[in-house]
């Protein structure tokens, strides 16, 4: 039995006194695409932020590749965070060129010179924006912005890719392209992908497994087909059939 990539044990996250996430036990394996589903306020973004170490749990343990994040020092946490990349819900482009945006993560990892240029160009080519290097990133359209955000992630070749609603507010063509790119990243690098989406069809198209969060708790986690065709929980049944009132 291979070691899980992530293991969450009794993880609780509170903002002030409000509990937004309460995960008793969750294991995530490597080399898979997980769709994180659930209504607004279910704790999906908080889960990803905890995994990416942007925030710390109020209590409980998160174990990444066998290392308890609570016990890891700042340097170790940074080293582990550098194996991941997260695309935030509100994608932010640095106010510089597209090239510099993509180069930033690589520069943080000490990549310089010819190698830097090669990997930036490779990443831009991967998302179909080879000619966009010199453009000002904040002037791009929504679809182009998401592709650059993905290029930033692809460039650093992360082991874990965390995507928080990467296709929200995009037109159907851009959605299809981003989905194709996510699958290609996964297939070409073996990266584990966790993608938050409200689009159940999207989850079915790209994910291997689905995890349903509701009121901060994991309600069900199952292979994608089983999740949609034979859900075990009544909440999941209501959610996938569109009957959930929230």
């Amino acid at each position: 039995m291979p070691e899980p990539l992530f293991e969450l044990i009794d993880v609780v996250k509170k903002y002030d006194e409000r509990t937004v996430l309460r995960v008793k036990d969750l294991q995530l394996d490597g080399n898979k695409i997980y769709a994180i589903l659930g209504p607004n306020g279910a704790g999906k973004s908080t889960l990803l932020k905890l995994l990416n170490m942007l925030e710390k749990p109020t209590s409980g343990r998160i174990i990444f590749q066998g290392v308890d994040l609570n016990r890891a020092g700042e340097a170790a946490r940074l080293r582990m965070r550098r194996q991941m990349c997260m695309v935030l819900q509100n994608t932010y482009m640095f106010d510089t060129s597209v090239y510099q945006n993509v180069a930033y993560g690589l520069q943080l990892r000490g990549v310089r010179g010819v190698e830097l240029e090669r990997r930036v160009k490779e990443a831009l080519s991967f998302v179909g924006l080879s000619d966009y290097g010199s453009r000002r990133a904040i002037k791009l359209s929504g679809g182009e912005t998401q592709r650059v955000a993905l290029a930033r992630a692809v460039a650093i070749r992360p082991q874990v890719l965390l995507l928080d609603e990467p296709t929200a507010n995009l037109d159907p063509d851009s959605v299809a392209l981003i989905e194709k790119l996510v699958r290609r990243v996964h297939e070409s690098t073996g990266a584990t992908v966790l993608i938050i989406t409200h689009n159940l069809f999207q989850a079915q198209r790209i994910a291997d497994e689905a995890i349903l969060l509701y009121n901060g708790q994991v309600i069900e986690r199952a292979p994608i087909n089983q999740f949609f065709t034979n859900p075990q929980s009544e909440i999941t049944r209501r959610f996938v059939s569109g009957r959930m009132v929230y």
Binding site: N52, L54, E74, L78, R82, M86, L88, Y92, L108, R109
Partner: peptide, 20 residues
């Protein structure tokens, strides 16, 4: 908020993110 978090998601330390 956004610039700091974005820099951190790309692997910046707290100091590097603050500089960004």
């Amino acid at each position: 908020k956004l610039a700091m978090d974005t820099a951190r998601t790309l692997g910046a330390s707290e100091r590097q993110a603050a500089w960004m």
